[in-house]
Write a protein that binds this DNA or RNA. Structure first.
Lengths: 215, 215
DNA sequence: TGTACATCAGTGAACGCGCGTTCACTGATGTAC
DNA sequence: TGTACATCAGTGAACGCGCGTTCACTGATGTAC
């Protein structure tokens, strides 16, 4: 239940089997297929069979590469977190040397854009609790990059001798990410009455940073 | 996929059929059964058959009372929104006459407690996008009460001649609800590294209001 | 250089499961006479 | 007051579906001699 109507059934494109010793390549292809599905369908539609179809292989072919469906999902989620962390790091790298607050805004902008441009991937980031304990144990390592990104920028801000408008860097990070995630979630789940244009959400986050740090 | 391991299969308790003309009672019993499921299982486990089992009836018996599974889900979601709105209104009613900021904190406290004490119901509130368009059209009416609750309290605050720390009452409501919802969502979906004791989340919201409105 | 063989990547068919939905029905409860 | 009957609340069996998973297999690709 609670699943949206199915999208078109992903006709399997002809696929050449990998060469000897290159079997591991399929693992990457499977993850890519999952990303393609997420770009056109809600996260709830992801399934082992659906991913196999999109990758152009038979369902059992998943098993040599992933222990089971739960682990496949976990790998997909991990990859999404990695993407998000990378996009934030990239945004930060571009304005290295600039004022830490500008860097913070760049990172947060990257965060909002990832969420609004790839809503299914973003929603998957928070489907973690549904996964097995074993997978959850690795969670800090997967989630950390996005979180650390903000903390470190705030630490740079502090290092310039300026003060924080709220708690320490960890607490303020929670504040900023809560606000941003909350605004995104409201835009994605109650799109009507709440002004929800993607730029609207990004502008909201930028404005929030400006006002938070305004003397 | 992305479903948690099933809880025990809800042995059907013996049920007496309703009397002539009382058939409508079953509708309420079905909704109650759904709430009981949500109190012990993740929202993803909800299904027409599961609800029927919990209510002690056969699956087809749902149909005279709900058009189909989608509509059943929609009714359940609507009921959760109604509950949340009521708890916020109740909290506001208790401190009527008090400072609007205290009323705001009371309402927000009720909001956080609903979310942390009934996580599955809370998560269901935001499963709306998965439902049909037809259902979504009624959304404003179902979501409004919780939202209006905050707006009205902020309007009272303004009426006392005090100013707002952010935009107008509508914008500030978005800010406050985004922050609160975001913090709840992070606590519920990444429970580890983020201090997530329920009191922690409520304290976070209270502190946020205090600081926001601090001169 | 040619051939037998092991290995490896991937398949097809089948399984049981829970789901939403349909259909013809049952049997208790009231009502008409 | 007794009986035939209509109505109403709810059932049991069956359907097709997509899912995750298993099993025995196929057939191309390299390797050994």
């Amino acid at each position: 239940m609670l699943t949206a109507p199915p999208t078109q059934p992903a006709t399997a494109p002809a696929r050449r089997r990998n060469l000897r010793g290159e079997g591991g390549l399929l693992k990457g292809e499977v993850i890519s297929a999952a990303m393609r599905i997420l770009d056109r369908a809600p996260a709830t539609e992801l399934s082992l069979r659906m991913v196999a179809r999109e990758a152009g292989i038979a369902a059992p072919s998943i098993y040599p590469h992933f222990k089971d469906a739960k682990n496949l999902m976990a790998e997909i989620v991990r990859d999404c977190w990695r993407q998000l962390g990378n996009e934030m790091s990239l945004a930060a790298a571009i304005c290295v040397g600039a004022d830490p607050l500008d860097m913070l805004k760049a990172q947060l902008g990257a965060y909002v854009r990832y969420a609004m441009e790839r809503p299914s991937r973003y929603q998957l980031l928070f489907a973690l609790p549904q996964l097995e304990v074993e997978v959850l144990r690795e969670l800090p390592g997967t989630v950390q990059p996005a979180y650390r990104n903000v903390v470190q920028t705030l630490e740079q801000h502090v290092a310039t001798g300026k003060s924080l408008p709220w708690g320490d860097t960890a607490e303020l990070t929670m504040f900023i990410l809560s606000l941003t995630h909350g605004r995104i979630a409201l835009a994605q789940t109650a799109p009507h009455r709440l002004g929800n244009a993607p730029e609207g959400v990004e502008a909201f986050a930028m404005k929030a940073i400006d006002r938070l740090f305004a003397t």
